[in-house]
Every structure is written in C-alpha cells, then in structure tokens.
Design a protein around this nucleic acid. Structure first.
Length: 568
RNA sequence: GGCCCCUUAGUCAAACGGUUAAGACGUCGCCCUCUCACGGCGAAGAUAUGGGUUCGAUUCCCGUAGGGGUCACCA
C-alpha cells in the first residue's frame, strides 16, 4: 500500500514537467461574468466526418438556449482520437453548421488562411492542443491517490489496437469477462513505486486510470433536465483518464474543459447516460461544480424488420450535406428540427407567420424523452410551407445557387434570364393560399422545365377518347383569336367560344348536370391547350402560364402541335 | 448477459388524476375548380399488457412484454 507521500512521489515521477497547479488554471480561466440566468452551452463534435442529422439537435438546442438567455454558445473540437480523425472534417463541420444558421460566439473558427483557429479567451478550443492543461489535473489526482498508472509494453499496446473493439463487445462472454475485469483491476491497483520506476526507466507507455470508490449497489439520484429524475448506480470502474499517448479520454476532457470553459448546460445524446456516473465521480474528485445535463433522445430509423434503430452515419438522411444535394433549403431543415424539438412550434408559427424561428420561445420542458423516427414526409410538408412563403426573388436566388452546384445546365437556363425565371416562380405565389409545388429545389426542374424550349417536350398524350380532328380544330380556333394582351376574362371567354364551336359545353355546371349530352367541355378544350403548351395534363393556371411564356412561344407550340396532329 | 432509458393512431405528438383522449403529417372521401397545386369540410385510426393505489388512472406505484442504448487506451 502506498502512503500519501508515495502518491506525491508518484505524481512527480509520472508528470515531472508539470509545474502548474489547478489553482493556476483557475486564474487563467476565470469564471464568466454573465447576467443572471444566462446559459453557457457548447457543441463539441469529434472531427471524424460530416455533421450528422442527430448532431443538428444538440447544436440547435445549445444555440437556442444560449442566445435566448443572453449567454454564450461555443464550439469545441473533440479531437482526442488521432486514429479516427478525418482530414478537413473540422472545417467541414463548421461550414455545414453555418449553412444551417448555427452561429457560435466563440471557439474554433475557420481562420483567414482557411485553417482552424481559436476565437475567445477560454481556448485552445481543440482538445488535442490542451494536453498540458489536462496533465495539471491528472497530476493532482495522482498526488491525491485518486488515479494510478497501468503500464504496458509497446508490443502489448499494438496488440490492443489491433482488435476490433466493436466486434469484440458484441461477441463477448459477459460472465467470464466481468469476473476477469474485476480481478485485473484489483491487481493493477497494487503497483509499487519501484515497479513504476522500472517501467519508466524502460520507457514503457502507461495509461492513467481513476481509482473508483463507487459501489454499484448504491444509487445516485440525479435530475436530468429532459429525462427527469434518474437513479443510476455508482461507478466502480477504474476508467482510463489519459491514454498512453498522454491524450485524455472523453470523460476526463469533458470534466476539465466544461469546468474551465464555464459550461452551464451540457447537451448530448442519451447514449452518454450510462457513463454519467463516471462524470459525476470525476467532477467530485476534481472539486468541480457539476453542470446541468440534458440527455436528448436519439433520432431513429426503421430497419428491414421494422424495428427502430439509431440513425447512423450510413443511413439516408444522416449526412447534413445530403440535404443540400437533395435541394432542401436550410430554413426547411431548421423548421423541421424545431417541430421535433418542441411540438408546439408549428402552432406558434401559425400564429406568428411573419416571425423567424429564432423568435420562438424554445422550452426545455417541451422536449420529448423518447426517440423519434425521421420522417421525410413531414420534412417535405414543412419544406413546402417554407418555400411557399418565400418571395419569387428568394426562391430564384436559392434555386439558382442549388442548380449551379448540382445541376449546372439548369443553372445556366435560370441565370440566362433572371426576370423570366422569377416570373415563373411568381405564378401562384404571394397570396393567402400560395401554391406548394416545391418541397426541394430538385422539384423545380420537373415543375417548370416546360417554360424553357430546351427542356420542353410533350410528356403526356391526349386521352384517346378525343378525336384528333377535334383537338386540332380547337387549337386552330384558339390560335386565330389568341391575343396575349387579353385579360383573364376575355381570354377564358375565347376558350368558351372555341368549346361552343366544337359543340362542347362551355358552361361546366350544365356539363356536369348532363355529361352525356356533350362530346366534351370547356375543361377539355383547356386540356387540349395545356398539353400543346406545357406538354403535360397538369400545370399551374393556363392563363398565368401563357402570360409568362409570351405570345411567341405559345403560338409556336400551338402550331407545332397542330402540325404533329396533322401528320399523325 | 448486467445496468440504464423509453412505450398515446402508420409517423410526430397534446392532455399539470376527472376531456366525447387535441392538433399536425400521411391515407381515404366530398366540395371548390379549366387540370394540378392551394384551400374548405369530413372519415378511418391510439393510451403495449397484468396487477395495485383512488370515488375516479393515459396520468401515480409494482410486475411483464416490446423497443432502444451502453458495457474500448471511440467519442
């Protein structure tokens, strides 16, 4: 057994270069001066890939809570695992978050040279650059007998890194394994100063483990801001604080960083709940005040069998960058997220249609404690509403931006005549009951392509129950009287006149009362025109379409169809 | 397997012990209508299950089942 003096000696042996004490750190990172009730939150991703849809939840919540309360929202990069780090991922994360309107007050930012830089006085904001800070606290824990080293040889370490942990956990024999772990932990705790000296002299790497004093039979009562009152077993696992490369694990970095950076609310996924006891223990050992925690439920998807599964990286809809490619406007995604976060959001929005979502009083208590299924249908509905509220100008700008990135040919068409494109987007827009044709920018081309001669073609055939001669005659008659200067009433009266000349019903009520009395109706005449002019059986209002197309295009298309019918 | 979390229609969800158990998306029907979209009206559809506590339970407690998460020198 080591004495108190031995602990002190051990701490010097392990961390000879650490000269600072925790008190020094407190001076370097003073408590934040903020108004009463201000929340300090952070988003702390590891740079291992793209922003995940699930990642948008904690970041949105953190942003809302901080900015709604006059607090601070910062970005910390948790790059403690060099093996998994992906080149350029941090930059990508920052850009994607910015795209969705997630704005940070401090933390890691993209500097002028395009590389990650720090902004704020609580940095560095990349954990890989905070090594010396963690070591100060590691040394303290060792000196107090609350942490101890476990040495391995380099060969053993390589063997350890070679095993596939995920598979190992799945195929584990829990009974045997648990017993073995306890025994191993007990033995490792008994290391002597002489052994430590020998290992250090041999240059053996070590990990630092916490000496856990918890009893899993005892429960900790804990209140999570989302999950409510929880009872979790105390921690008795001597978990790793510092890895053999001297870099901390998540647990240790979380405690040190969130303390020094003054985080008041930790927002993270519920997959962290099982390690909460470790964190509570660490904060206690380190003498830190425990922040408030919000463990949010995971976003789920359905697997092949119909069971819910955590939405994971490979799933459709997981990568936020996919939403850009699919043509979703950032505002659509943000509003969808808000509806999932606080289900009264839609109601609020209906009452405050003019206000941006950032004015919505976000409420922690309204958050669901069970995981929801990702629903594209709902997203599309939200998105249709969002896009239908935009001005033709906005729609044009965003659609053009999307097209330039993902459909350059279409982008060129849009850019060639902005006024024309905006006139198309303006059809059925702006009133109390706007059209909702677009859920994504991908929908734009199929919806409006016929306005462009380059994309126009006859997609739908005329129904076979109409005589080709009737159709041809209708088109010709209309062509004879068509004048793009006509107002809508005159225009429609002319169509009615065509119907009458064909012997078709010009009054829909009369036609519906006795459909058998007529070979067709004015609706059919409109349909004849519609197919000739738009190539489709369905389109927005024909008058508006013709007005935007212009007289030349309309006449050319009518003539073309007449020719086609003659030759058929 | 241990531990933890979760459970109201197909989906997201209201209902601080007393309601004919809201609303939205989706589905279906009708209306409006030159088609489509929009809009309006309507329909079907839920408290997982078994016990308690209570005058009364979706709501509180216990069990069961189902689902999810976690048990790394990953976060």
């Amino acid at each position: 057994m080591m004495t108190e003096l031995d602990f002190k000696t051990l701490s010097e042996l392990l961390f000879p270069n650490v000269t600072k004490a925790p008190e020094d750190m407190e001076l370097e990172y003073p408590a934040r001066v903020l108004p009463e009730g201000a929340k300090v939150t952070r988003f702390a991703p590891s740079p291992t890939g793209f922003v995940h849809f699930g990642g948008l939840f904690p970041s949105t919540i953190g942003e809302r809570l901080a900015h709604q309360s006059g607090g601070v929202f910062y970005l910390r990069i948790e790059d403690t695992d060099a093996k998994r780090e992906v080149e350029g991922a941090a930059e990508g994360l920052i850009k994607t978050l910015a795209h969705y309107g997630i704005r940070f007050d401090e933390g890691a930012v993209i500097g002028k040279d395009g590389k990650i830089a720090d902004q704020g006085i609580y940095g560095p904001y990349r954990q890989s650059q905070r090594g010396p800070i963690y070591h100060v606290y590691a040394k303290k824990l060792v000196a107090e007998g609350r942490a101890y080293p476990v040495f391995t040889t380099k060969e053993e370490l390589e063997a350890l890194n070679a095993v596939d942990k995920k598979t190992e956990i799945k195929e584990r024999d829990w009974h045997e394994d648990d017993a073995r772990q306890i025994e191993k932990q007990r033995a490792e705790r008994e290391i002597t100063l002489d052994e430590v000296k020998a290992h250090l002299a041999a240059g053996d790497p070590f990990v630092l483990r916490l000496l856990a004093d918890g009893d899993p039979e005892k429960k900790i009562r804990f209140t999570d801001l989302i999950k409510g009152n929880l009872e979790i077993p105390e921690n008795d696992e001597d978990f790793v604080l510092l890895k053999s490369d001297g870099i901390p694990t998540y647990h240790f970095a979380h405690a040190v960083d969130d303390h020094l950076m003054g985080t008041t609310h930790v927002i993270r996924g519920e997959e962290w709940l099982p390690s909460l006891a470790k964190h509570i223990m660490l904060f206690r050992y380190l003498g830190f005040k425990l922040p408030k925690y919000m463990h949010i439920a995971q976003i789920m998807r359905l697997d092949e069998v119909g069971n819910k599964k955590k939405l994971s990286k490979r799933d459709m809809g997981a990568n936020m960058d996919d939403y850009s490619r699919m043509g979703y406007a950032p505002a659509s995604v943000c509003e969808y997220v808000m509806t999932l976060l606080n289900s009264n959001y839609e109601e609020w929005h209906a009452q405050n249609p003019e206000l941006p979502y950032t004015d919505f009083p976000f409420n922690i208590k309204k958050m669901s404690n069970s995981g929801c299924l990702f629903d594209f249908q709902k997203l599309n509905d939200v998105s249709k509403n969002v896009l239908s509220r935009m001005s033709a100008e906005e729609v044009y700008d965003q659609c053009l931006e999307w097209a330039n990135a993902f459909d350059p040919d279409f982008g060129k068409l849009l850019a060639a005549d902005p006024d024309y494109a905006k006139a198309i987007f303006a059809i059925g827009r702006g009133g109390k009951k706007p059209r909702k044709d677009l859920a994504t920018w991908c929908d734009a081309k199929p919806y409006m392509g016929f306005f462009y001669d380059e994309l126009f073609n006859i997609e739908d055939a005329y129904p076979e129950n109409f005589a080709k001669a009737d159709i041809e005659k209708a088109l010709s008659l209309f062509l004879d009287t068509y004048d793009s200067a006509d107002d809508m009433t005159v225009w429609f009266d002319k169509i009615k006149a065509v119907a009458e000349q064909l012997g078709y019903a010009s009054d829909m009520k009369a036609y519906k009362a006795d459909p058998a009395a007529y070979p067709g109706s004015v609706a059919d005449v409109s349909m004849f025109l519609r197919v000739a002019v738009t190539g489709k059986l369905n389109s927005p209002d024909m008058y508006a379409v013709m007005q935007v197309l212009g007289e030349d295009r309309v006449k050319a298309r009518l003539n073309r169809m007449i020719e086609t019918l003659k030759n058929a």
